[in-house]
Amino acid sequence: MVEKSGASRWISHAIMILGVLFIFFPIWLAFVASTVTQADIVRPPMPVLPGPHFWENYKAALFSGVNVPVSVMLGNSLIMALGIAIGKIAISLLSAFAIVYFKFPGRKFFFWAIFITLMLPVEVRIVPTFEVVAGFGMLNTYQGLILPLIASATATFLFRQFFLTIPDELAEAARVDGARPMRFFWDIVVPMSRTNIAALFVILFIYGWNQYLWPLLITTDPSMNTIVMGIKQMFPSGDDTANWPVIMATSILAMIPPVVVVISMQKLFIRGLVDSEK
């Protein structure tokens, strides 16, 4: 491997730093806007340093809103994102384990039937899915927000491909030791899938957190609104004036949980994506 010279290394680092600053600058402006007054934002030039109204604006964002406090919407989004991520991983682990380690008629057919559902995203099947959820009386419930979105063909496929790399000798050894299939699953397969689970959890949590269309369709009770819906509702209609400091504070608060998940699981996430022996 050819090592870079000192000059090229400095240039590479400078380009990366500029890229990070370019991406981070709008977020910084949103944070600054959440700490100043409405007049400071609408009167040019907009400040680039934080103002003295941090606690005032964030308190207003957390405990007020268009129809419901932002803190309630954050809780709804957190429950929904965790439910979707955990549900998708649990179902995908079990379905991939059954497809790989159990011999039953139509095994390949069922796998391909699951895989074909990749061509049917929520937007395509949203009307019949809504009818089913409404028929079960799950409108304005956490079950209605979570259950229709917890099946994942992508996660099932990824776990299946990983399980195929596990040596057959491990399953044979477990069988010789008298371990039943679920004991083999919990004690060997799941621990070996730790990095895959972490990588998928990060992706699926953000997927659930950013959901907008499905919660908008099945929630008519303001107390069940998610934070993404809440931000959209804060924008005024007609001649009303937007409360930009509160909107920006809500946007910053909405970014915190995904950022915490990514940072806390960063090492496992990277290993799950790039480790050739995961």
Score class of each variant (00 low, 15 high):
residue 15 I to S: 10
residue 43 R to L: 11
residue 163 F to E: 00
residue 104 F to P: 03
residue 56 E to K: 09
residue 32 V to P: 00
residue 259 V to C: 13
residue 263 I to W: 13
residue 244 W to V: 11
residue 150 I to Y: 05
residue 47 P to Q: 12
residue 234 M to P: 00
residue 136 F to P: 03
residue 59 K to Q: 10
residue 83 G to P: 03
residue 42 V to W: 05
residue 274 V to F: 15
residue 222 P to D: 08
residue 58 Y to M: 10
residue 2 V to F: 13
residue 44 P to F: 14
residue 178 G to I: 02
residue 153 A to D: 03
residue 108 K to V: 10
residue 209 W to E: 01
residue 208 G to K: 01
residue 248 M to T: 04
residue 262 V to D: 06
residue 4 K to I: 09
residue 228 V to C: 03
residue 123 E to I: 13
residue 105 P to C: 10
residue 250 T to W: 02
residue 161 Q to C: 04
residue 27 I to E: 08
residue 147 L to T: 07
residue 141 T to A: 04
residue 145 L to R: 00
residue 136 F to H: 06
residue 201 F to M: 12
residue 234 M to D: 01
residue 259 V to L: 15
residue 80 M to N: 10
residue 143 Q to S: 11
residue 9 R to C: 03
residue 139 L to V: 00
residue 243 N to H: 13
residue 275 D to V: 09
residue 80 M to R: 07
residue 154 T to R: 05
residue 141 T to D: 07
residue 109 F to R: 07
residue 150 I to N: 08
residue 263 I to L: 15
residue 190 V to R: 01
residue 78 L to N: 01
residue 112 W to G: 04
residue 22 F to M: 11
residue 104 F to Q: 07
residue 130 F to I: 03
residue 202 V to N: 00
residue 231 I to T: 03
residue 160 R to N: 06
residue 81 A to L: 14
residue 183 R to A: 14
residue 256 I to S: 03
residue 223 S to E: 15
residue 142 Y to S: 06
residue 76 N to P: 01
residue 13 H to L: 14
residue 51 G to N: 06
residue 193 S to I: 11
residue 10 W to I: 11
residue 74 L to E: 01
residue 214 W to D: 02
residue 134 A to I: 05
residue 235 F to R: 07
residue 126 I to P: 08
residue 225 N to V: 00
residue 22 F to S: 12
residue 204 L to W: 02
residue 277 E to N: 13
residue 234 M to F: 03
residue 136 F to Q: 05
residue 46 M to K: 07
residue 222 P to T: 08
residue 115 F to Y: 15
residue 203 I to S: 10
residue 126 I to M: 15
residue 3 E to D: 11
residue 232 K to D: 12
residue 66 V to D: 12
residue 255 M to Q: 04
residue 186 W to P: 01
